[in-house]
Write a protein that binds this DNA or RNA. Structure first.
Length: 264
DNA sequence: GAGTTTGAAACT
DNA sequence: CAGTTTCAAACTC
């Protein structure tokens, strides 16, 4: 058991630890050719019109998911997603002033004016499920999303629902040593990149671990897919052929409404 | 609120 | 890729 982490949680002073994702690097940490390609793709996304001298700085902010409408059934307001914006130093200066002016002393960042605008825009959103997954096509207010309680992962792994949904942790979160607080954008980006690299390496398909609107299929063995442990149940979705669950009670009821045969 | 159970995520 | 460990949330008492 890692008492160090618990000590951190309890507020004891201890030496700073590396993020979990960096701590546990085995062979996964080695660089492979496909990694290079992924990094190239990432870098190309981050490449900006700025000159080399004017190194772009990455700002993570919240916004509407631009790709959401492709997958959603209707055209309701889409879930908030974290956006990565490349800023020039000069723009960053302006932006940081704006953020600074709205931040309290508290370590968790306050909502910025942009975020406030988004929240106002999302007032009409449907209520989320009781679970912590801001998933499926049910967009929710940030204030309705349950806060995380991560104690060991610095909120930089998919265990963290905030991180998983590409949202910053909020003041309501009770996480320890949180790196997903908007103050550690480098660490967040590295963590995201590592996860994507791992994804690619193990890829049998083009899944995106950060697209929590997708359901990849549960593997419930004991709970019959009728409790909050089941990702399908949580999302109010029936288990499907993607699932590898046992004794499932969350399957689609077989309907006996045969198609009416048209009499000619 | 503490302890247990659970299944996803991470690791080997 | 299967087995094991770790993790955080759900659940129980």
């Amino acid at each position: 058991m890692n008492y160090q982490s618990y000590n951190n949680c309890a507020g004891y002073i201890s030496s700073p630890e590396l993020p979990w994702s960096q701590r546990k690097q085995g062979s996964e940490g080695e660089f492979e050719p496909q990694d290079e390609q992924i990094l190239e793709e990432t870098n190309s996304k981050f490449q900006s019109k700025f000159s080399f001298e004017e190194q772009p700085i990455i700002l993570i902010s919240q916004g509407l998911n631009p790709s959401a409408s492709q997958n959603s059934i209707n055209d309701e307001v889409q879930p908030q997603m974290m956006q990565i914006e490349i800023l020039s130093p000069s723009k960053l200066l302006r932006t940081s002033k704006e953020i600074k002016s709205t931040c309290s002393i508290d370590s968790k960042p306050q909502t910025t004016s942009i975020q406030e605008e988004l929240i106002v825009n999302s007032r009409t959103r449907r209520k989320t499920s009781k679970a912590n997954y801001n998933v499926d096509e049910s967009p929710t207010l940030d204030s309705e999303i349950k806060p995380c309680h991560c104690s060991k992962t610095n909120c930089l792994q998919l265990y963290c629902s905030c991180f998983h949904n590409r949202r910053q942790c909020t003041q309501e979160c009770k996480c320890c040593d949180c790196y997903n607080d908007g103050q550690h954008t480098d660490e967040v980006l590295k963590a995201v990149e590592q996860i994507k690299i791992k994804e690619q390496r193990a890829s049998h398909h083009d899944l995106d671990s950060f697209d929590t609107r997708q359901v990849w299929g549960c593997k419930c063995k004991k709970t019959k897919c009728v409790k909050g442990y089941c990702e399908c149940f949580i999302r109010n979705k029936k288990c499907s052929s993607h699932c590898h669950c046992s004794d499932c009670q969350n399957k689609k009821q077989k309907t006996y409404q045969h198609k009416k045969i048209k009499k000619i």
